[in-house]
Each structure stands twice: as C-alpha cells, then as structure tokens.
Amino acid sequence: MLDDSLYARRVSPLDGAAKPASLPGGVTVRQLKPEARFSLRVKAGAPADAAGFALDQKINSIVVRGGRWSARLGPDEWLIGGPEADAQLIAEEVEATLRDRPHSLVSVSHRNVSLEISGANAAIALNAGCPLDLSDAAFPAGSATRTLLGKCEIVLIRAGAEPSYRVEVWRSFSTYAHGFLVEAAFGLQNAA
C-alpha cells in the first residue's frame, strides 16, 4: 500500500490567482470547481441520448439535465460534463451505451479550466476579445460554441438566461484568459 503521505493532491493553474474579485462594470470573474469533462465524438447517426447526455440538440447549443450537461460543438463532437466524483461512472455508462457505434470518449477534465464571468455587462466584457454577437437574440440561453477570446481559443457556454457565461479554456491558457477577462472589466469603464 502506498503511504498516505504520498497521495498526490490536485493543483489548479489558477490556484491563488483567480479569487473572485468584484471588478468594474459589476462583472465577476471566478474559477469554477473541478468537474469531470469528456470530449465525446460520435459519427452521424448518434442516438438522441447517451447515459443521460443529450446528443440530438442542434450544433452550438447545450442541454443540462440534472448534474450532467452536453454541449454540441460540431456535427460529431460534444463536450460533456458532470460531477467530478462521477467521472468513472460517466465513462462507463457512455461507453456501455455507445458500445456498438464508432465513437471516442476522451477525458479532458484536467485539460480544461472553467472560468465564469457574470454580471449585467458580462457579454460586453467578453466582447473585448470574443468577436461573436452575444446579444440575447444571437446567443440565447442554451448556447455553446468554440470561439476565440483574444489570442486563445475557448468554449463559450451560456446555459441559462441570466448574464452568466462559462469559459472553458486549456489550462496553460487559463492565466491569460483570466487576466484578459479581468482587464476587459476595466475596459468597460467610461469617464465619470
């Protein structure tokens, strides 16, 4: 048996750096707790659902069911997530459901860091570096897409109607993305 003292603990790239701060423009940026996340690929003809994850939503949208969510990023690509403790379970259930179809399930729980930016001006702050139209009409609740934030790639998710966005970014870009969002909040200010 491994000595208890040798068990590795997790360290996030933003530990210490990403304390929720109240920023100008009423915007809040924070890091979300770790979650299990997988990149799921299934070719055309995917079932409507795999282990509780919706697969039949239109491209660039997200469906949340209980603690599990699936964002369809392309015709055969989903980013799925659920509670960290369920990582093993999710993998087994999905694999079991899709056993008979060509597919790929790859854990990206550690690859991605999740940030959240919220507040009435969150979309405008995101638009400091994201070139998409984030208005309610163009990017309503239930939207999710891969896009850009400044010089890094992100997956941008708006699950609900409230002005709160999840930014999934690769871990080595997370300090940049976090710094960019904080700076974007300062950029919201106008002359008093």
């Binding site: 491209i59 990023l73 392309g74 015709p75 897409t145 891969r146 896009t147 850009l148």
Partner: peptide, 12 residues
C-alpha cells in the same frame, strides 16, 4: 473554389 476550416468553431 477554396478549402476552409472552421478551426476555432466546429472544426469542420
């Protein structure tokens, strides 16, 4: 006629 990829989108 050109090929394009939506690199930072759907990846297609």
């Amino acid at each position: 006629a050109e090929r394009w990829i939506h690199q930072h989108g759907c990846g297609r």
